[in-house]
């Protein structure tokens, strides 16, 4: 029983980070109906940037999002104007092809810059652990999860309370009507893509406090976040957290009780089943 609680705690904490990553993906998908195949690789790039700042500039990984957030935001806007904007009127196949190309590109760049072997940072300000009942909690995981939830709440507030946030929501609800009330479609798309990418910077920085990174990691985070997105559907922020935690727990339980290698197997199986049975998501509105 204790083992189960321990696994669930770890899984739930991880799940909050998955929810954060997926929030970025879902902003982009909700607004321009494009699934960014390179989203997981943006997480990977963010982790490498955190690693790089950690080992060469002595900055703690948990603080790197302060720098990488604006960088990834600009990168996202750059990607939007350079690639995505040109494919909006094309078939969805072309759109995916471009993001798949981007995925290959980011992975190759990471391999070129950091070689294939996994990298990690020796310690972080938020390392350490403590005991609650029978469960051991790693401080870095707890803080990462709390930061993720906080950021998710902030983004939710941004989407409902500010003008640019409302523009994003209006565009994802109804493109034609939103342009009638004067929303600049292109700028909103770019903003959504920038914000969606920038969120991976926070996830990447926090993940780097307790995880290692390698160039093939993008695929894993990509599939993980699609799985959470499929489970959530669109437009439900609390659903995102629940789905993230479900996926995180499923992964942890599979790791603990079946086989460490089975962790992703379970996630993908959930993903495929959800797609087959509930193509609109379990918590979604559309």
């Amino acid at each position: 029983m204790d083992a189960v609680i321990q696994l669930l705690v770890n899984g739930a904490l991880m799940g909050c980070i998955y929810a954060l990553i997926t929030l970025g993906l879902s902003l982009i998908f909700g607004v321009m109906n494009i699934v960014n195949f390179a989203h997981g690789d943006l997480v990977m790039i963010s982790m490498y940037m955190a690693f790089w700042m950690g080992s060469y500039m002595g900055l703690d990984a948990s603080l790197t999002p302060l720098i990488t957030f604006p960088m990834l935001f600009l990168l996202g806007i750059g990607i939007y104007y350079a690639l995505i904007d040109r494919t909006l009127r094309q078939k969805y196949v072309t759109q995916i092809a471009v993001t798949v190309g981007l995925m290959t590109f980011l992975r190759a760049v990471a391999q070129l810059a950091w070689k294939a072997q996994p990298r990690s940072l020796p310690y972080s300000l938020i390392s350490g652990n403590f005991q609650i009942g029978s469960a051991t909690i790693m401080t870095s995981r707890l803080i990462s999860a709390l930061v993720s939830v906080l950021v998710i709440v902030l983004v939710a507030l941004f989407l409902s309370r500010t003008w640019p946030g409302r523009a994003i929501r209006a565009v994802s609800d109804d493109l034609d009507a939103s342009s009638l009330v004067g929303v600049n479609q292109k700028a909103t798309y770019a903003l959504a893509f920038g914000l969606g990418s920038a969120l991976t910077a926070i996830a990447g920085g926090m993940l780097m406090t307790f995880q290692q990174v390698d160039p093939t990691m993008g695929l894993r985070f990509g599939l993980l976040s699609w799985c959470v997105l499929a489970l959530t559907g669109l437009g439900s922020i609390s659903g995102l957290l629940i789905s993230g935690i479900i996926v995180g727990c499923a992964e942890a339980l599979a790791m603990g009780f079946w086989d460490p290698r089975a962790r992703l197997l379970v996630v993908y199986l959930i993903f495929i089943l959800v797609l087959w049975l509930r193509p609109r998501g379990v918590f979604g509105r559309k």
Binding site: V35, Y92, I96, L219, L223, W226, C227, A230, R261, A262, L264, L265, Y268, L269, F271, I272, L275, W276, L277, P279
Partner: peptide, 24 residues
């Protein structure tokens, strides 16, 4: 279940990984 477009792409992509891990 009419899984199509992006969702077809994503699920077929996941299928490859499922098989890879299952065979390992």
């Amino acid at each position: 279940f009419k899984v199509k477009e992006v969702w077809y792409a994503l699920s077929s992509s996941a299928l490859v990984e499922v098989l890879r891990i299952a065979f390992i």
